[in-house]
């Protein structure tokens, strides 16, 4: 589904991603872990098409198409979804209008029929239950005045509405209390299908107690330095990241 080869990206002349290689197949869940500043969020942003970062080398293939050649909106329409670490508040744009616009533009792109107003509302009601979302949140402006936990839930709710092929969850667990974390994890698990995949970007292992990854990668100084099964996460939790640093610098 996703093939990343020697991906290098810079911001303000500083190289953050220094040759990433990664393969993700349909049905898989990958966790990308690593210390602060290792480039985890940059990888998510580059994949989603954030123009603040400049890709200087490498390629990313998504379902056989050149991802880096696409605008952010086309990446989303091709089925890529980024759950933002810091969801943006947009006063004046209602959640309903935002989601209906997004969903319909994606459907139009794929040549599918757009939803009628009542079908859309039905879908919203249905998906809200999945993430235990308060009804009144969808009557408000996008993320405006939402608590940290509500914002994260809202990201998963949007994911449930848009039903992406590949979801990248950027530190979706950070700042969540245990109840909210369960709700979020539960939502992700329920949305899992043999034909979609998930990348979990996280600093801590706790989320992985609830969403079990097929593979765990450690990102360090802009490169994937270690890949293994879920036991790697447990080891990182126990021993921290220092041993990786030492191993790398040795």
């Amino acid at each position: 589904m996703l093939k990343i080869r020697n991906l290098r990206a810079v911001i303000d002349g500083k190289e953050i991603l220094r040759g990433i290689n990664l393969d993700i197949k349909a049905g898989e869940i990958h966790a990308i872990m690593g210390p602060n500043g290792s480039g985890k969020s940059t990888l998510a942003a580059v994949l989603a098409g954030n123009e603040a970062f400049e890709v200087i080398e490498g390629s990313v293939e998504f379902n056989g198409k050149d991802l880096l050649d696409m605008s952010p909106e086309d990446r989303a329409r091709e089925g890529l979804f980024l759950s933002f670490q810091y969801p943006v508040e947009i006063p004046g744009v209602s959640m309903t209008n935002f989601l209906r616009t997004a969903l319909n533009e994606q459907k139009k792109y794929r040549g599918e029929e757009i939803l009628s107003a009542s079908d859309f509302l039905k879908l919203m009601r249905d998906r809200k239950k999945l993430v235990d979302m308060d009804s009144d949140l969808t009557n408000r402006s996008v993320n405006e005045g939402f608590s940290g936990g509500e914002k994260k839930k809202n990201e998963i709710f949007q994911m449930a509405m848009l039903n992406p092929g590949l979801a990248i969850l950027d530190e979706t667990d950070s700042g969540l209390d245990i109840d909210a974390l369960r709700v979020v994890a539960n939502g992700v698990n329920k949305l899992r299908r043999p034909d979609n995949a998930t990348i979990l970007i996280t600093h801590y292992q706790r989320l992985l107690d609830y969403i079990v990854p097929d593979k765990v990668h450690v990102l360090f100084k802009g490169q994937i330095v270690k890949s293994a099964g879920k036991e790697l996460a447990v080891e990182l939790e126990k021993n921290g990241y220092d041993w990786i640093k030492q191993e790398m610098e040795a």
């Binding site: 989603a48 098409g49 954030n50 123009e51 605008s71 952010p72 909106e73 990446r75 989303a76 329409r77 980024l82 933002f84 969801p87 943006v88 947009i90 006063p91 004046g92 744009v93 209008n97 935002f98 989601l99 616009t101 997004a102 969903l103 533009e105 994606q106 792109y109 402006s141 996008v142 949007q158 848009l162």
Partner: peptide
């Protein structure tokens, strides 16, 4: 707001439509 613009586009909303949404939000 460029951050808001990226957020909307990352959900599949075209740049033109995102522009309109944000201008309207301003007004």
């Amino acid at each position: 707001d460029e951050e808001a613009m990226f957020y909307l586009r990352a959900r599949g909303i075209s740049k033109e439509e995102a522009n309109i949404l944000l201008m309207f939000a301003f007004a």
